[in-house]
Simulated assay, not measured.
Amino acid sequence: MQLPADLRALPAAQFRALAALALMLIIAQIDQPFPEIAWLHHVPTVLLLVAAPMLLRRWPLSDGAVVALVLFFALHTLGGRYTYSSVPYDDWVRSLIGSAPSDWFGWTRNHYDRLVHFAFGLLFYAPIREIGLRWLGQSRIMAAIVSIGFALSVGALYEIFEGLLTLVVAPEMANGYNGQQGDMWDAQKDMGLAFVGSLLAAGCVRWSGRRG
C-alpha cells in the first residue's frame, strides 16, 4: 500500500513523530473514562494530524520544530483522555516511589492543566519563531516578539473559548472540559504559565545562540 504524496514527502523523523501521535490518540480512546467530554479535547489533535502532512509539504519545518509540536499535542492527548482535572499523575508517581507531588507540595487540586499551559508556551515558541524566520522574513528580534505574543494571544483566546463554552453546553460538561476546579483565577494563571514558558524558551534559544 502506497502512502499519500504528502506523507511520503515528510522527513522520516517527522513521519515517525506524527505516526506516534496518531497511535497515542487511538490508544487514548480504549476504555475511555470520559467519552462525553473527550471528543472536545481530541478534535484539535485530529485536525493537526490531517493537516500537518499537507502544510509541512508546502511550508517545511525542522525536525525539532515538528517534534516540539507533537510533544505538546501528546501532553494534550493524555489530558484529553482523563480530562485535565483527573489525570492520575499522583497515582503513577506514588506507585513508583511511594509518594506523590501532591504529598510533597500540599496540593489540593490537580495541576496537570497547569503543566500543559506552561508546555504550550515552551513548545510552541520554536515552531512559531521558525515560521517567522523562514517563511515570513522576520528578524530574530521580531520573530521572538511574535512568538511570545503568540503564546499570550492564543492563550487568551483559548480562555475566552472556554468561557463561551460554559454558556452553550451543560454545566457539568463545561466544568469537566475547563478544569477550573473552583479557582476563580484559573484563566489568569493558565495564561501566565504560557507566558513564562515562552519566555523560558526564548531565553534558552538566546543562550544557545550565544554559545554557538
Rank of each mutant, 00 (worst) to 15 (best):
V168C: 10
G192V: 04
T77E: 14
L96T: 03
G192S: 03
G121F: 03
R140S: 09
A143M: 02
M184P: 12
R94L: 04
L122F: 15
A174M: 09
R114L: 12
L167T: 14
G203V: 03
G106Y: 08
Q188I: 04
H76W: 06
G132T: 03
L133Q: 10
A143K: 10
Q181E: 13
D190K: 08
Y158M: 13
G79H: 00
G98K: 00
E130L: 08
V154H: 10
A74E: 03
N178E: 13
D103F: 09
I128L: 13
F150R: 00
P171T: 09
V168L: 12
S95M: 07
I160F: 13
L75K: 01
F120P: 01
W185I: 02
F150G: 08
Q180K: 13
W92E: 09
W185H: 10
L123T: 09
G137C: 00
W92A: 09
L193V: 04
A156N: 03
N110G: 02
E159P: 10
L199H: 05
L199G: 01
S198T: 06
G149L: 06
P171N: 12
A174R: 07
C204G: 11
Q138N: 12
S102E: 05
A170G: 11
M173P: 08
G121L: 00
A194V: 03
A68V: 04
E172T: 13
V146G: 07
M184G: 01
L167Y: 00
A74N: 02
A143L: 02
F120S: 13
P171A: 11
W107F: 15
E159M: 10
